[in-house]
Amino acid sequence: MNPAHWLNNPMFGVGGTLLVYLAALACRRRWRWMHPLVSASAVLIVLLTTGHIPLAFYQSGGDWLSLCLGPVTVALAVPLYKNARRIKEALLPVLAGITAGSLISVAFTALLLSLTGSPEELIRSMLSKSVSAPIAMEIARRAGGIPELSASFSVLTGLVGSVTGPAVLRLCGIRGDIPLGTAMGTSAHGIGTARMIAESQSLGGISGFSMAAAGIITSVLMIPLYWII
């Protein structure tokens, strides 16, 4: 049978992704410095590139996995519910930190790209890089940016934050669950929250709340910027 028939089957994208990710998790258990999302993504890119496999073939199954993101995101409510009391007790400082982080992210991105002479369309696409991809895409669409480019920046930001964020924060002396979870959820959205859940339910719950709040706050902060940019 023609190999293209198998490659164009949705099970190729689903099965291939799951197998590679399981292998990445096994490597993570042996080499703690390896991040499973980064290594799995790198392996998939290499396989598609060297095997000359069209992206559309892989995406026919990859779209199934994307469809699962909604229920998975809702599942983040479980650790959030379990830590609702702790979040409520520190609600004002947490919201202040999320607001400050969201504001600094948007302002610093706009300033840095403006000073380097970046195209306006790139600036509009990158302003929402620190929120989850669906929110970032909608913000970019309404701001006149490129939604697909904004989603790429969002995923990249989450990956970088997930890989380096905890080490950098702890190096700066930030060790409590609430500040760590707040910082990771605000800056690295869902990918950072997944990293926090892997460490503890407490960190995951606080990070999940921060991710959701940062999405709302960033969307509100962007309203006046629609007229400025």
Rank of each mutant, 00 (worst) to 15 (best):
Met1Val: 14
Met1Leu: 06
Asn2Val: 11
Asn8Leu: 07
Asn8Arg: 05
Pro10Thr: 12
Phe12Gln: 04
Val14Thr: 04
Leu18Ser: 02
Leu18Gln: 12
Ala23Glu: 09
Ala26Lys: 05
Cys27Tyr: 00
Arg29Thr: 03
Arg30Met: 13
Arg32Ile: 05
Arg32Met: 01
His35Asn: 13
Leu37Ala: 08
Val38Glu: 02
Val43Asn: 03
Thr50Pro: 11
His52Tyr: 05
His52Ala: 06
Ile53Leu: 08
Gln59Ala: 03
Gln59Asn: 08
Gly61Met: 10
Gly62Leu: 02
Leu67Met: 07
Leu69Met: 13
Gly70Glu: 14
Thr73His: 10
Val74Lys: 08
Leu76Val: 13
Ala77Glu: 06
Val78Tyr: 09
Val78Leu: 14
Tyr81Gln: 07
Lys82His: 07
Arg85Ala: 08
Arg86Glu: 01
Arg86Gly: 10
Leu95Ser: 06
Gly97Trp: 07
Ile98His: 03
Thr99Gln: 03
Thr99Ser: 12
Ser102Ile: 02
Ser105Glu: 01
Leu112Ile: 09
Ser114Ile: 15
Ser118Lys: 00
Ser128Trp: 03
Ser130Arg: 02
Ala133Gln: 10
Ala136Ile: 04
Ala136Gly: 14
Arg141Ser: 14
Pro147His: 12
Glu148Asp: 12
Ala151Cys: 07
Ser152Cys: 13
Phe153Ser: 04
Val155Phe: 05
Thr157Gln: 10
Val160Arg: 02
Gly161Trp: 04
Thr164Ile: 09
Gly165Ile: 02
Pro166Gln: 01
Val168Asp: 01
Leu169Glu: 12
Arg170Val: 00
Cys172His: 00
Gly176Asn: 02
Ala188Met: 08
Ala188Ile: 07
Ala194Met: 08
Ser219Cys: 11
Leu221Ile: 14
Tyr226Val: 15
Ile228Ser: 15
Ile229Asn: 12
